[in-house]
């Protein structure tokens, strides 16, 4: 079993330490994102500002098209903003080259998508180890850590199964383990239980709570599930690309 202590003490990054010392995992200021399609423009984010403390769990809720996923993608350096400032763990991810931004995403961000997005040709174990391999680790070195994480999400016996041989809930748990393999400073989840039945969804929700508690990982979750949102300590509501309510302020 990979304990929270081992996870945080054995290989915590300088970034985590710095984030904790500054106490801010995410700082967003006047973030704007405009999509242009010929003469048409769509303002997905219209000046979003908020901060998230290290180790905090935050739910972002809102109607479809309110800009939640766009915000999540930009915070995770998967998409770039049109304007505004953003710092994750004290770093501005958009001030580097593709190599540097990719390294940032690999080392400091963990993604969990609505469609689990596992690699179908790799086993659960290999899927979990993949971010470590991208970081430059050997598979043999990653195996043990991946097994511990799979055990933590209750799938140690399914390590050699391929995504097609796992249920939706199991696939999502593999995706969560994969997101944690490099011990990121920030875990981003976009509708992690959106495609699951209520029982599996509840399991995933409680898993997020446990991981946040055990690993002290900052969690930012976009969800339509009101129960899940209400179960998290902080809730940010969005509409038309703006924050309309934030229980943390």
């Amino acid at each position: 079993m990979w304990s929270a202590n081992e996870a945080t003490s054995a290989s915590s990054t300088d970034l985590t330490v710095q984030a904790k010392s500054q106490n801010w995992a995410v700082e967003v200021h006047d973030l704007r994102k405009v999509y242009s399609m010929g003469e048409l423009t769509l303002e997905a984010l219209a000046g979003v500002s908020f901060s998230v403390r290290a180790g905090e769990s935050v739910a972002i809720v809102g109607e479809s098209g309110s800009g939640k996923s766009t915000l999540l993608h930009i915070v995770g350096a998967l998409d770039s903003p049109t304007a505004g400032q953003i710092r994750v763990g004290g770093l501005d991810p958009f001030r580097g080259t593709d190599r540097q931004v990719s390294f940032f995403r690999n080392k400091h961000i963990g993604f969990v998508f609505q469609n689990n997005n596992l690699l179908p040709e790799f086993s659960a174990l290999e899927n979990v180890a993949m971010p470590g391999l991208i970081l430059g680790q050997r598979f043999e070195d990653m195996r043990q850590r991946a097994l511990l994480l799979l055990e933590r999400v209750g799938l140690s016996k399914r390590a050699d199964h391929y995504p097609g041989q796992l249920s939706g809930g199991e696939q999502q748990r593999v995706a969560i383990a994969r997101a944690l393999i490099n011990q990121p400073v920030l875990l981003l989840a976009d509708e992690p239980s959106g495609n699951l039945d209520s029982r599996n969804a509840a399991n995933i929700h409680s898993l997020f709570a446990e991981l946040n508690r055990d690993f002290q990982t900052t969690v930012l979750v976009v969800t339509h599930n009101q129960d899940f949102a209400n179960s998290l300590p902080r809730r940010i509501e969005m509409r038309d690309g703006r924050i309309t309510a934030d229980s943390g302020t």
């Binding site: 300088d14 770093l91 001030r95 540097q100 990719s102 991208i134 970081l135």
Partner: peptide
Amino acid sequence: MENELHRLRPGSAAIFFLLKRYLLSSW
């Protein structure tokens, strides 16, 4: 801390792993 972003990241292990799988093994 900004220097951390400028560190070289070896992705060759992943490329080799992916290549091996896509071409040779796990039939």
